[in-house]
Design a protein around this nucleic acid. Structure first.
Lengths: 238, 238
DNA sequence: ATGCTTCTTTGCGCCGGCGCAAACCGGCGC
DNA sequence: GCGCCGGTTTGCGCCGGCGCAAAGAAGCAT
């Protein structure tokens, strides 16, 4: 059954950064914990937004679906990140759906609770603005990328972004630490799984990446960066 | 020289909605007004973010430039809207540049001032979240559009968006109420001015729009909606 | 008017990337 | 083991839209 989470966990989260002990206790008191098995849809696009969510453990992907069923992967997120929080400011409906790609632990607050918390502790609202602002900038950057860059570079960017978010060092390079299909990559970069597959195959032939089903390891990150940034000489060492 | 603006103007702005008289006075006391001639660059991408801005009158476009000079028009905004506000939450640098497309009147606050205001009046922070949330949703929607839809539909969407923001009824239809070049449209939709030109010409031939240089009138909005939404039958009447 | 600049239109050729379709591969249940 | 299913690869043909280039128009300045 749901119970209050450890305050220490919250304190590490950007949303609750720099809160006094007392405020933090207030936040904890109103939180609800939930275990979410892999594959669960945490919420659906268009649902009435019920709460702000914070991921304690696991990974979640945020997918938006268009009128004709075309999907776009908007975001992958990991432990410590918030999601669905902005929905309560956007007409009260989730603008996308959240899927647990691994087993997850999340805490959430009801909308009125969160609102009240923010009124009581302005710091939280400011933190939220800070987070949202950063995310906003990222989305804008992606918008520029997708409207001005070719597919290959977009895929490179997407992979690098994922590495930054969920990269884990392994002996052969950096691995993206959750199931990631060609289709997912296609939906993040506005292309098709065919093209993604072809591109990865090409890179694999050049020893830049190594991929199996749902799984990608970047063996030569610097060369991927070179592709993403369109550098002339893919240096061997830096 | 700069002076304090009329409180009534502020009260109509989403950021200061539902503020008590006293709080509003506080806000006004710290605001600075500025006149900006058409064509001025209000701030540049990468500049240290100095202030939150609010447009009292005129129109502004927000443009992001990529490493190789490729540009994207992120937003057009009109009287009553805020801009550059999120920059202070994004590492303190403007993520894009703001250009006055008409003569403008703006008010602004320094970053510390605005921060202090938000601490003192949480309502402002909540309003900011609300605005930012809405904008965020729009950008996400645009991201989906641009990655899944073909050029023609993207242009249609862009025009409709502009009509919503700056549409003015005229006898022949709805006019977009500021200078808008083919190049601008191209940069909003991730295509080239050539393609935009061709598309508009085609629509002009069908009597859907009428355009001159820097100026577009939509004569048959419903048919444009039909294109944007990919409806089968472009009904003549609804 | 006369030119100059800026924006726009249009033709033409090419190519990146999509769409379809078929084969392949690895894992899982039976 | 065997077959099935979901993910992946690859070939092939086509086409939307880009790029180049050149020629209009519409303002603006002199």
């Amino acid at each position: 059954m749901p119970h209050s989470p450890d305050p220490a966990v919250l304190h590490g989260m950007p949303l609750f950064k720099a809160l006094e002990r007392e405020a933090l206790a207030d936040v904890v008191r109103h939180a609800q914990t939930r275990l979410i098995p892999k594959g669960t849809r945490i919420f659906s696009q268009g649902d009435e937004a019920l709460a702000g969510h914070a991921l304690i453990d696991g990974q979640v992907k945020i997918v938006q679906t268009g009128p004709d069923g075309q999907q776009v992967v908007l975001h992958f997120l990991g432990a410590g990140e918030m999601f669905g929080t902005l929905a309560m400011f956007m007409g009260g409906k989730y603008p996308a759906e959240a899927l647990a790609v691994t087993d997850c632990v999340e805490i959430h607050w009801s909308v009125p609770t969160m609102m009240a918390l923010m009124e009581r502790h302005p710091r939280i609202a400011l933190n939220a603005l800070s987070i949202l602002g950063r995310r906003f900038g990222e989305v804008q950057k992606r918008l520029r990328e997708i409207s001005t860059e070719r597919v290959e570079r977009r895929i490179a960017h997407a992979l690098l972004r994922l590495v930054r978010q969920a990269g884990r060092r392994v002996e052969t390079g950096v691995e993206i630490d959750f199931p990631l299909s060609r289709q997912d990559l296609a939906e993040m970069t506005g292309t098709t799984l065919h093209t993604v597959s072809r591109t990865l195959s090409a890179w694999e032939g050049q020893g830049i990446v190594a991929s199996t089903r749902q799984h990608v390891v970047i063996t030569e990150p610097h060369r991927l960066v070179a592709i993403a940034e369109d550098l002339p000489a893919p240096k061997q060492k830096d």
